[in-house]
């Protein structure tokens, strides 16, 4: 009876406590690392916010349209505070990973290694998407202003098309970076982009065939220039 009690109850409990005693220092170290990490993360957040204020980061974001994006997304925080928070969580996550490593648990270590190796891809993908958004907005706005000044009635849709095309390209590149459905996304993008270009080519071809004909005739036959229409004006602005 005694041997049964020793073998099936006392021994595992003893073993558990032995392992717990062995594990306790690691756990303590992990807890200390997390607490220190949180303190450092807070200091880092404070410093980052101060730095962002010095370099007028908020004004810069306003200029390139980041604030508008945030407002549209219902985020009322200012970009410098968001950067502070981002660095805070990056520091916390880093110390959390160090704390997990200090526990010396093989399965967690493996998982962490794989996660750490994948992390740069996530950062690059985020940067690609942010750049795509900023570029899309910038070029979309430039297209809109240029086409309005040229008197093009479809300026709005044209600028949306440019903006959407660039954003779509950046999302495709980001997904490719993350290794998500690489082939499918590239083909899908290629088909879609090709389709848009083809339809535009057909539309311009059908719509502008007379114009092209006139231009070619004038070019090859050196026809005398037609008198200027009444719509033309001679205003010299400068």
């Amino acid at each position: 009876m005694n041997s049964f009690f020793d073998k099936y109850l006392l021994e595992p409990v003893t073993m558990f406590f032995k392992k717990l005693v062995q594990f306790m220092p690691n756990l303590l170290v992990a807890l200390i690392v997390i607490i220190v990490g949180i303190i450092i993360a807070n200091i880092l957040r404070f410093l980052i916010i101060r730095l962002m204020k010095v370099v007028h980061f908020d004004k810069g974001c306003e200029r390139i349209g980041v604030n508008q994006i945030l407002e549209k997304g219902g985020i009322k925080d200012i970009p410098s505070h968001m950067m502070g928070r981002l660095f805070y969580w990056l520091a916390v996550a880093t110390f959390f990973i160090i704390a997990l490593n200090s526990l010396n648990i093989p399965s967690i270590e493996q998982l962490m290694t794989r996660f750490l190796l994948y992390l740069p891809n996530v950062f690059i993908a985020i940067i690609i998407i942010v750049l795509g958004y900023v570029m899309g907005n910038f070029l979309g706005r430039a297209t809109l202003i240029a086409s309005v000044n040229a008197g093009f009635p479809m300026s709005g849709p044209l600028s949306h098309l440019v903006k959407l095309g660039i954003m779509l390209l950046s999302v495709t590149m980001a997904l490719e970076q993350l290794g998500i459905g690489e082939a499918t996304i590239t083909i899908a993008f290629g088909v879609m982009f090709g389709g848009v270009v083809l339809s535009l080519a057909i539309a311009f071809g059908l719509g502008g065939k007379d114009l092209a004909k006139q231009y070619l005739e004038k070019y090859f036959e050196s026809k005398p220039e037609e008198p200027e229409s009444e719509e033309h004006d001679d205003i010299s602005h400068i």
Partner: peptide, 23 residues
């Protein structure tokens, strides 16, 4: 004399108001 087409100017003005309001 200088030819001036005010209708074309107003047309471009109206197009701008329609499209550039957000800016």
């Amino acid at each position: 004399p200088i030819r001036v087409n005010t209708d074309a100017m107003i047309e471009k003005f109206s197009l701008g108001v329609g499209q550039l309001t957000e800016i």
